[in-house]
Write a protein that binds this DNA or RNA. Structure first.
Lengths: 236, 236
DNA sequence: CGGGAGATTGACTGATCTCAACCCGGGTGG
DNA sequence: CCACCCGGGTTGAGATCAGTCAATCTCCCG
């Protein structure tokens, strides 16, 4: 879900004060964060950090969309999730002190604020509500990861693709004409579903033939969400 | 890794004070936990809690082994992980307040202490080190879950089975004769790997033919770990 | 000794991957 | 202005990994 307060370029502090992660900081603690400078900018296609690199702080997305993925043994990517305004990246590595286990790449021009690990840790120690919020975020991700494991292990590619379309809808919403508000290549779709590009292409045309979706290049229009949900065998 | 202090039936407090989760509690905070009563006992095969049920506290395993799994759409199980002495179950639901997303079943006679969610929350609020430890645990699980997603999505069943054998070795160790110290049915192995029981059987006999393992009923002896690691295409 | 659960094996099937050819639109340089 | 190139996108054919079904076996237990 998008944050209520969108960051437009001059209200960073307000943006942070309403964000999922930092909503429970005191005014004083917010001032402690480096919010007087502009966020770092990343052009579409720019890499924020790479798998295996040492990162030791939070990357808070203020604007844009980032894809978070792992590169498998044979060089094929697996997209784990996307980060949108209000989301945090680098969470796991900051807490565990391990190297980054994912690469993060901007797929739309993005703006990101970096919060050092020391700052995060001192906030955890001094602000129990903040600690609880972090735990919530980690646990939510964990729940989703567990669902994903079961899905990939048990569902067919067809079911998973339907599910991914529904999830993209929930994450990025539809525009007025029911088009998904996110632009992905077929290859990226395949990297989410965990399949070959060609399989995605074939199944998308099937869905199109069945009048479940409409395709205009990368733009995907959802015509029959109920049927897609049914195909996906989702819990809800 | 097993805890240095094993719980034998009369030193619960010491066991907790050395555990990954509660190691940073003060003596006073430890006394606050319900450690004067005996842990709950679960016979082999007993279910601790079921997917979809409301749980609101930590289940701390003192003894035994618990399998943690989700039941997929078609009724097939997917084992997410195992809990051993010192591990916590029900973590996620306690923090997020959602219903349990997994079923937990004892596969060896087990003993478990229940710590209420209120107690956990008050400890998070009052003890920053404890909060950090919880975050660590959540983030470790998250990292493993992400690895798992990539594995299942990209590796062959053969590679995954080899990897699972290695992981079981790391989690449960080998006895003096190099046998895995955990007894699983072929079906359970299949539920970890995410495949059919028959596939596990066939691949295990292949591994046996290739002198990588030896089989005696459910007992699995690791003969050539290096080769298994190679087959699994693991990072380490 | 009969029953039942788990393990094994074989045969068959089919979903999905791979390989290879081809298309299409946009950008570029001659 | 046009031919070319290049990165996606699409389609078809063939190969294959792995799942299903079914029969059989083994072992343990009452």
């Amino acid at each position: 879900m998008l944050e209520k307060v969108q960051y437009k370029g001059d209200n960073l502090k307000e943006f942070f004060s309403k964000s999922t992660v930092f909503k429970h900081l005191t005014d004083e603690q917010l001032d402690y964060l480096p919010l007087d400078q502009d966020p770092d900018r990343y052009k579409r296609g720019a890499i924020v950090y790479e798998e295996g690199s040492r990162i030791s702080g939070f990357f808070v997305v203020c604007k844009g969309v980032i894809k978070i993925y792992k590169t498998g043994f044979d060089g094929k990517d697996q997209i784990i999730r996307f980060a949108k305004p209000g989301d945090v990246m680098g969470f796991r590595s900051t807490i565990t002190g391990e190297l980054a286990c994912t690469t993060t790449k901007s797929i739309e021009d993005s703006e990101i604020v970096y919060i050092s690990g020391e700052m995060v840790k001192s906030l955890v120690m001094s602000n129990g509500d903040f600690a609880m919020d972090l735990l919530q975020i980690a646990c939510n991700e964990l729940g989703e990861a567990n669902d994903y494991i079961t899905d990939i292990a048990q569902k067919t590619v067809r079911e998973r693709l339907a599910e991914v379309l529904i999830q993209l809808k929930m994450t990025f919403n539809l525009d007025a004409a029911n088009y998904l508000q996110i632009s992905l290549t077929r290859e990226e779709l395949a990297s989410i579903v965990g399949t070959a590009t060609e399989s995605v292409i074939r199944l998308l045309s099937e869905f199109k033939q069945d009048k479940l979706i409409e395709l205009q290049g990368r733009r995907i229009r959802i015509l029959n969400e109920a049927k897609l949900i049914k195909i996906s065998n989702m819990h809800y």
